Simulated scan of single mutants.
Amino acid sequence: MFLSITLLLVAILSAIGIARELRRKNFFAVGFAAISFVVFGAFSIATIVSILTTGGGAPTGH
């Protein structure tokens, strides 16, 4: 559960970074923040779903 909360926190901070860098018109940083948001958000959601459905930790893939 700690992993999913940490990944979700990083995704939220990346979303804040997207908004901040859009105001500064720094599109290179917006791109990296958007990629981080998508990757960390997907992994956090997958981990949370895995914990709720199987009762385990990270997704195993089998």
Results as ranks from 00 to 15, higher is better:
Ala33Ile: 05
Ile35Arg: 03
Ile51Lys: 01
Phe32Asn: 13
Leu7Ala: 07
Ala15His: 06
Phe40Gln: 05
Ile12Asp: 05
Ala46Ile: 04
Ser50Pro: 01
Phe40Lys: 02
Phe43Pro: 04
Ala29Asp: 12
Leu9Asp: 15
Asn26Ala: 06
Ala42Ser: 15
Thr47Ser: 15
Glu21Thr: 14
Ile18Arg: 00
Thr54Met: 03
Val38Pro: 00
Thr60Lys: 11
Arg20Thr: 13
Ala29Ser: 12
Phe40Tyr: 08
Ile12Pro: 04
Ile12Val: 08
Gly31Phe: 11
Phe40Asn: 11
Ile16Cys: 12
Ala19Tyr: 13
Gly41Thr: 02
Ala11Phe: 06
Ile51Met: 03
Ile16Tyr: 05
Pro59Leu: 02
Ile45Pro: 04
Val30Gly: 01
Thr47Met: 01
Gly41Asn: 03
Gly57Asp: 10
Asn26Tyr: 03
Ile16Asn: 05
Gly56His: 12
Phe28Ala: 13
Ser14Leu: 07
Ala42Glu: 10
Ile35Ala: 13
Ala42Phe: 13
Phe37Lys: 01
Leu8Lys: 08
Phe43Val: 06
Ala34Arg: 00
Phe28Glu: 14
Thr6Asp: 12
Leu13Gln: 07
Phe37Gln: 00
Ser4Gln: 08
Leu22Tyr: 06
Thr6Met: 15
Ser36Gln: 10
Val30Phe: 02
Leu13Asn: 08
Met1Asn: 14
Ala58Gly: 14
Ala34His: 02
Thr60Met: 10
Arg24Phe: 14
Phe2Asp: 13
Ile51Arg: 00
Gly31Glu: 04
Glu21Phe: 06
Arg20Glu: 12
Ile48Asp: 02
Ala33Phe: 13
Val49Pro: 03
Ser4Met: 07
Gly56Asn: 08
Ala58Arg: 12
Pro59Val: 01
Ser50Tyr: 08
Ala19Lys: 07
Thr47His: 09
Val10Leu: 11
Ala11Lys: 01
Glu21Val: 08
Gly55Phe: 05
Leu13Pro: 03
Ala34Ser: 06
Leu22Lys: 02
Phe43Gly: 05
Ile51Trp: 05
Phe43Trp: 09
Gly17Ile: 04
Phe2Arg: 06
Arg23Gln: 09
Ile35Pro: 04
Leu52Gln: 06
Val39Tyr: 10
Ile18Met: 02
Phe43Tyr: 14
Thr53His: 12
Gly41Arg: 02
Val10Pro: 00
Leu22Ile: 15
Val10Ser: 05
Ile16Ala: 11
Phe37Thr: 04
Ala15Ile: 11
Leu13Lys: 04
Ala34Lys: 00
Ile16Arg: 03
Ala34Gly: 13
Leu3Thr: 15
Val30Lys: 00
Arg24Ser: 13
Val38Phe: 15
Gly17Trp: 02
Gly41Lys: 02
Gly61His: 12
Ala15Glu: 05
Ser36Trp: 11
Ala19Arg: 07
Arg20Asp: 14
